[in-house]
Design a protein around this nucleic acid. Sequence first.
DNA 1: AATTGTATAATTGTCGACAATATGATTGTT
DNA 2: AACAATCATATTGTCGACAATTATACAATT
Lengths: 194, 194
Amino acid sequence: MRQQICDALRGEIMAGEISFNQPVREQNLAKRFGVSRNSVRDALLQLSQEGVLIYSPNCGVRVSSPPTRKESRLYAKLRREIEMHSLEITLSSWTKEDDGNLNRLQRILSVACEQQDLKVITETDLAMHRYWVSKASKELESVWLGITVRMLIAYSQLDNYMQCCLEHAAIVEAIACRDLSAAKKAVALNIRSK
Amino acid sequence: MRQQICDALRGEIMAGEISFNQPVREQNLAKRFGVSRNSVRDALLQLSQEGVLIYSPNCGVRVSSPPTRKESRLYAKLRREIEMHSLEITLSSWTKEDDGNLNRLQRILSVACEQQDLKVITETDLAMHRYWVSKASKELESVWLGITVRMLIAYSQLDNYMQCCLEHAAIVEAIACRDLSAAKKAVALNIRSK
DNA sequence: AATTGTATAATTGTCGACAATATGATTGTT
DNA sequence: AACAATCATATTGTCGACAATTATACAATT
């Protein structure tokens, strides 16, 4: 349940559906999701730890403001480090099933880019990158998520859907060929600050 | 309350007082801290997000195992990036009060090194580095904590107290002189994987 | 002795309620 | 009109209890 609330809220925040610095109320969410406030608290706490929300004791949580340009650049750098490391240590154990999973995600992304559905693009982009990081290490995934989600808060300004789509296709292609060098290049090209 | 539980547990885990992969039970902790289980859950969730504990749905949390050597190297690199960025954007607004706070921490560290009190060393080391990261950005602090705590899980093998002490003194000295280049060098020297 | 099945105990996940704190509205004073 | 004080409402923090799930212990079977 917590994960569902987290995913829904994270998606909305990253898609810019909730304004920056706006308070997020436990009771409203509890009503909306049909659960008790405690369950919502758990989700809000998780999202606070991820950096999507900012927690203040006794005052609840607010939506994080987007990172500064400097911070975004740092996040991009950190992400590249983590994702390249992940590819380095996982590529040799990549399976056909992994290929299939990535291809499926790429297809979803492709359709979303054609339909200019920003929310799905953001979610799928996240899921694709998350795939290789998660394959490397669950701990690393958690670190990566905290960085990536912060960075993607500003993603709502995406202005070139086709390029986004092509970049991800290049990553998937390189991985399918087990070409680490090409995969790293493609990832680095995709992860840059806006 | 949550913060107190978090700090206590984090300290114990980083000091190696709880074995890797050992389950951490809500009820035991609730009894120990004299609070309800819900309050403990919050703390455990936070520590899970930090990477100190590993959460499994319906099965509770376990103490994380230390990072692999490769991962430690990555964490050290990520930490250096974050801490240098933090110094870059904060050094120009560093105050006398900041100097005083850092000096106080350094003194605590010095005494702990003389007494070979590993727990206090770990906590103080963490607090010193956290100081400049937190000064840069609350969001960045949260990302940094997830990385640093993971890295410090293996810290219990510290074998040269005096070197640790001298390295931190060098950082504090460089900051007090507002010498960014020297501060960055000193931080980089201090942050290396074991 | 080793394996499987069942019951019991331990633990987690979620609930609603009460206490504590913060926020907003209203009233009083200058 | 502007500011301070007070009160009412909204919200968070924490509690203990019940439902659901997992782990452990014990009995039965091979």
